[in-house]
């Protein structure tokens, strides 16, 4: 899976740009499968991407279009998917979002993730042996009725709390 170290992330969105370009030959925030949530007022930059969570919420797809690959990433069958949007709703952190009639979710670029190469801050690492280690159970309930963008924001805020505490401890104590 992709391991994110938000402490190192500069928020430059290089991961997004390269992800989007690799998948479509174009660049854009929504064309990326990894999305950086930026909270300027606290200095937090947090790339949100599929965590391959233990719960695999998205696999409850009503069309059974979603399966898990050997690498642990999500695979969506374009023939079975009818764009019902259930996966968007199911994913607690907004890592799946439909854009231009395609559910956008990290596919690990077939085993050589472009975001990892693009990031000069070493904020994203890829370890193919780590799968399904993160549980999003605690977070799931909070995100009911949220849009994917809202979920990413809420998730970044929650996950960066410790980061902020460390910074403040470092510089103010």
């Amino acid at each position: 899976m992709l391991i994110i170290d938000a402490n190192k992330c500069s928020g430059c969105r290089r991961c997004e740009t390269h992800c989007s370009f690799y998948h479509s030959g174009k660049t854009g925030h929504l064309g990326a499968r990894i999305k950086v949530e930026k909270i300027e007022i606290t200095g937090v930059d947090f790339p949100v991407v599929c965590h391959q969570c233990k719960e695999h919420y998205c696999t409850k797809c009503p069309r059974e279009a979603i399966s898990i690959t050997d690498r642990g990433s999500i695979e969506i069958s374009p023939t079975l998917c009818d764009l019902c949007g259930a996966c968007e709703t199911l994913c607690p952190i907004g890592a799946i979002q439909i854009y231009n009639d395609v559910p956008h979710v990290c596919d690990l670029c077939g085993g050589a993730p472009k975001c990892v190469d693009a990031c000069e801050m070493d904020a994203i690492l890829y370890d193919p042996d780590i799968k399904q280690t993160i549980s999003l159970d605690g977070f799931k309930k909070k995100t009911k009725k949220m849009t994917p963008a809202e979920k990413r924001h809420a998730y970044a805020q929650q996950e960066s709390q410790q980061l902020r505490e460390n910074w403040l401890k470092d510089r103010r104590e």
């Binding site: 290089r14 200095g43 930059d45 000069e120 910074w167 510089r171």
Partner: peptide
């Protein structure tokens, strides 16, 4: 930490406290 503008690979800006 470092901060960066869009699609930068230098990230010369900084966040300070």
């Amino acid at each position: 930490k470092n901060k960066g503008c869009f699609n930068c690979n230098i990230n010369c800006s900084r966040y300070y406290i």
